[in-house]
Simulated assay, not measured.
Amino acid sequence: MNIIISNASSDPIYTQIMNQIRQSILSGELQAGDSLPSIRQLAKDLQVSVITTKRAYEELEKEQLIDSVVGKGCFVSGANKDFIREQRMKRLEEKLLEVIQDSKELSMSQQDVIEHLTILFEEDQTS
């Protein structure tokens, strides 16, 4: 597992760690039962605070992506990938509803929102 921290990113470091571990799990790079580096080891490797890595692991555990076993460490959860995907889809839908509400407040049409989304999507693919 290779985690890269970007100081130029607007995302907090713990979020960057979470996102990269989450992506590794959902892509299948990390399998159920695989062990993760200890909180202290990951903090040392990334040269960040133990509190930062602890928060990332706690959030991943809340999402049921990892399990923490006292005295043994953290492991990729055996939770159903479809269930995890469904949870993420629900969060995405909530964010999209917020975008819809904001666009209505700005008097944007559905087509305006789609065009903006298309532009942002294309820009993200080039970076």
Score class of each variant (00 low, 15 high):
69 V>W: 14
55 R>Q: 13
49 S>K: 04
34 D>L: 05
97 L>Q: 05
55 R>E: 14
67 D>R: 09
123 E>M: 12
31 Q>M: 13
6 S>M: 02
80 N>H: 00
24 S>R: 09
39 I>Y: 01
81 K>T: 00
39 I>H: 00
84 I>K: 00
78 G>M: 06
35 S>T: 03
96 L>T: 06
7 N>L: 10
46 L>G: 12
6 S>I: 01
27 S>T: 15
59 E>R: 04
122 E>H: 09
28 G>D: 08
82 D>M: 03
63 E>A: 15
125 Q>K: 09
111 Q>T: 05
24 S>A: 14
42 L>E: 12
52 T>H: 10
62 K>E: 13
45 D>S: 15
97 L>F: 15
5 I>N: 04
82 D>F: 07
98 E>C: 10
83 F>N: 00
49 S>D: 15
23 Q>D: 15
112 D>K: 00
116 H>L: 13
60 L>M: 05
76 V>S: 02
115 E>S: 07
84 I>D: 01
1 M>A: 04
94 E>N: 09
2 N>W: 09
64 Q>Y: 15
96 L>D: 02
94 E>R: 10
13 I>L: 11
75 F>S: 01
101 Q>R: 08
44 K>R: 08
30 L>R: 01
76 V>C: 10
39 I>S: 07
121 F>M: 09
93 E>V: 11
104 K>M: 14
18 M>F: 14
112 D>I: 02
110 Q>D: 08
68 S>M: 02
69 V>H: 14
20 Q>F: 09
80 N>E: 10
33 G>I: 05
23 Q>K: 11
72 K>D: 12
52 T>N: 13
127 S>G: 07
